[in-house]
Nucleic acid binder design. Structure first.
Lengths: 231, 231
DNA sequence: TCTACAATTATTGTTAACAATGTTTGAACA
DNA sequence: TGTTCAAACATTGTTAACAATAATTGTAGA
């Protein structure tokens, strides 16, 4: 059962994934000691992982208080989606440059999975797959920097939707993703860009950005539940 | 003389600046102990700063070997400039959205400084100001995410030019910057985008990306010199 | 009964000592 | 004389103990 010593990168990845897939909602306190128990490592290791997440903006660190999953503000929400439009347009351009015809099958498969999750009403899986679609696109684009950037933005989007879209868990619809892929398959990259832009604008529109921003902050022991069985 | 305890963020900033302004060239070894002496803090603090820089891609960390200023590859160089084109186009769109007329004076002043540095042949200052122009633009755009992203990209660009443009320190010419600002002043954002794109393509063209990538790696005590008097 | 102050407790931040790993230098052998 | 192996050194990686700060709770006074 000994897990051969988790490296800080693995810890970082696992916490990141838990946040990105919304098992660790905004406001959740990330107590160092508790994380030590969960991962079976000592505090400095945890500390380094949390530092990285703080640097990414996913975690907010208050001196002498501790680390919390960031609760995005309205301005931040708007900026995240604006930046995503800029970046994801670039992703499509990168796909155009390198020719994307070869890897379309993977995208089709992914969308099929999304439809399946939607049909089953598996919320957690829907959230995961919605983000993964955009990441998959970025990886196919073969631009490491764009992929890195988008990775951050997608995870922040998850926090944003968690705060500003509390009820409707609809997220990205598979149909809108399909429209983008269809345009790519047709080699019509301008249409693909337009579809992507529309998709992101729609996602932003679904948010309740006029709202007060209630700042919900659960503090229960979601930590163990979220991080223990994160696939 | 006591410097009131440098926080890890300050250390990060100072090392970052030294790399971005090319006082710490690619391949430079960043020995923890030496950095401790320079900043007068203990190792864990240095460690955290180096971790952040590693996460940014500015520093490469080899296990049990230490940290080095990253030496970018040809592929990385191309990707950096491609990504910059995507992002900086976004910056101009953001300027368009919020109306950029109010802060043009700052840009004009900046360009004047660039011309001055160029006339004096002050290479270090030219490098600093070239990067700062693009950052200034991003800050005026009022998109924290774009600014953050561009910050990383600009510093990586510095590394790229250090490796692939060894002789000609020309960097960005003030005239090309002026062209962008002129378009912004005229409210012609499409032209501004075109000018920015051309500017970045020109910068990439000046690189010798066909070359072998010699991987120069000075190991002398540039550390003290670079970090002690970094303004 | 409510408020303010103080003491305790819990948590983070820091430092120092220790262990493990990789590198370099020297010597011995081919 | 060149090459290989071994030992010593230097540097990073880890752990554990300690100090400082902030929050909370309880008590006393109004």
């Amino acid at each position: 059962m000994k897990e051969a010593k988790l490296t800080e990168k693995q810890i970082y990845e696992r916490i990141w994934k838990s946040i990105a897939e919304r098992r660790l909602p905004p406001g959740t306190r990330l107590k160092e000691e508790r994380l030590c128990e969960i991962f079976g490592v000592s505090r400095p290791r945890i500390r380094r992982a949390l530092d990285q997440l703080t640097h990414d903006g996913l975690v907010s660190h208050i001196p002498n208080r501790g680390a919390f999953v960031t609760t995005p503000s309205v301005d931040e929400a708007r900026d995240v989606f604006f930046t995503r439009r800029v970046v994801e347009r670039g992703v499509i351009e990168a796909l155009q440059k390198r020719g994307a015809q070869d890897k379309l099958a993977a995208l089709e498969t992914h969308i099929a999975e999304e439809r399946e999750a939607l049909a089953e009403g598996d919320t957690a899986r829907i959230i995961r797959l919605s983000g993964a679609f955009h990441m998959l696109l970025a990886e196919l684009a073969a631009s490491p920097h764009l992929a890195d950037i988008l990775r951050d933005l997608v995870s922040k989007s998850t926090l944003v939707t968690a705060v500003f879209q509390p009820k409707c868990d609809a997220q990205c619809g598979p149909d809108e993703h399909a429209a983008i892929v269809a345009a790519l398959a047709a080699g019509d990259f301008d249409t693909a860009k337009t579809a992507m832009d529309a998709h992101l604008i729609e996602a932003e529109r679904l948010l309740e950005l006029e709202a007060s921003g209630d700042g919900t902050g659960p503090q229960d022991d979601v930590l163990g539940a979220a991080l223990s069985k994160e696939l």
